[in-house]
Computed example of a mutant assay.
Amino acid sequence: MTRILIIDDEPQIRRFLTICLGSQGYQLLEGDNGQTGLQLAALHQPDLVVLDLGLPDMDGQQLLQCLREFFEGPVIVLSVRNRERDKIMALDNGANDYVEKPFGAGELLARIRSILRTYTGIDTPPTGYDDGHLRIDLLARRVCLAEQDIHLSRKELELLRCLIRYPGRIITQQQLLQEIWGPHHCHDTHYLRIFIGRLRRKLGDDPTAPRYIETEVGVGYRFISHIDQA
């Protein structure tokens, strides 16, 4: 059964969501403040979180950052805040969708179904990569290039893991920094440039004609997979 965690301090909203989502077969967990919500998320690992930004003990944006330190599932923000900067901040902090209050039950259910479809089977991280030239075994923490073992530091291996997780897709600088160094370093792009440079040298990658790691200037990086062509 799909488990959904609701973090909202308004009893009437939680009651409405419990009835609405429960009628569709979802299992519900409820937290009426940020700390309780974080504890429930850590303890029960829900499939999706519905989060209000206006909480009594902490701001929802701060909670979202804390949540993303350990929770990889989808998060939908429900909020009366309708300013564009609030929406952008929530999405940058890791939200998958933003729904303004008041909202319709049908719209919310449709958004939940859409996000859950996206996550089903797609968010399972790969355990490796092998195109015959570059071999990565994340379980054994081993990387080989042209049959030669190459040594990667823990951070370099984590960076490579993040990149191969979504081959062909741009991973933003902020996403990489938040996942590897944590939310307090999401603006330290110099860290990222240094480690990307080290990783490229070890993979024999030329940034002007990349074979594996492509830069999208000012945005992020993309891993180029060669498995289909191999």
Rank of each mutant, 00 (worst) to 15 (best):
I76S: 08
E72S: 13
G60R: 06
P46Q: 11
Q24L: 13
Q24V: 09
L28K: 14
L78R: 09
A95I: 03
Q27Y: 09
N82G: 01
M58R: 09
Q61H: 15
L67T: 02
L28D: 02
L43E: 07
K101S: 07
L78A: 07
V99R: 00
A41Y: 04
L21T: 03
I19N: 10
L91H: 03
N33V: 00
I76C: 08
L21A: 04
L55I: 07
L43S: 14
I88N: 04
N33T: 00
F71E: 00
F70G: 02
R15D: 14
Q65Y: 10
P74Q: 14
L17S: 06
V77P: 01
L51Y: 05
L67M: 06
N96E: 11
L91E: 02
G34A: 01
Q24C: 11
G25Q: 01
L78F: 09
K87N: 01
Q27H: 11
N93I: 10
I88R: 03
D92E: 15
L38Y: 00
R81H: 11
E84K: 01
A105W: 08
L40V: 07
V80H: 10
Q62R: 13
L48R: 01
L48Q: 05
E30L: 13
M89K: 14
A42G: 12
I88F: 07
A41G: 07
N33P: 11
Q62T: 15
G94A: 05
L21R: 03
L29A: 13
N93Y: 12
V50I: 15
D47V: 08
L91Q: 02
R85W: 11
C20M: 13
R68A: 04
L91G: 01
D59A: 04
Q45S: 12
L55M: 08
F103Y: 04
G25P: 03
F71L: 05
N93G: 11
N93Q: 13
G37Y: 01
Q24G: 06
G22S: 00
G73F: 10
I88V: 15
D52N: 10
Q45L: 06
R85Q: 12
D47I: 00
D97P: 03
I19K: 13
L38W: 01
R85T: 15
L78G: 09
F70N: 01
D86Y: 08
D86V: 08
L38Q: 01
L21Y: 02
E84N: 00
K87Y: 03
A95G: 03
Q45N: 09
L63W: 01
Q61M: 13
L48N: 02
L29D: 10
E30Y: 09
R68W: 02
G31E: 06
Y26Q: 05
D52G: 10
N96V: 04
A90S: 09
H44P: 13
G60F: 05
N82C: 00
N93L: 10
M58E: 02
L53P: 09
Q61A: 11
E100S: 11
N93D: 10
G37T: 03
D57K: 09
E72L: 14
S23C: 05
T18Q: 10
Q39K: 09
G25K: 03
A95L: 03
R83T: 13
S23R: 11
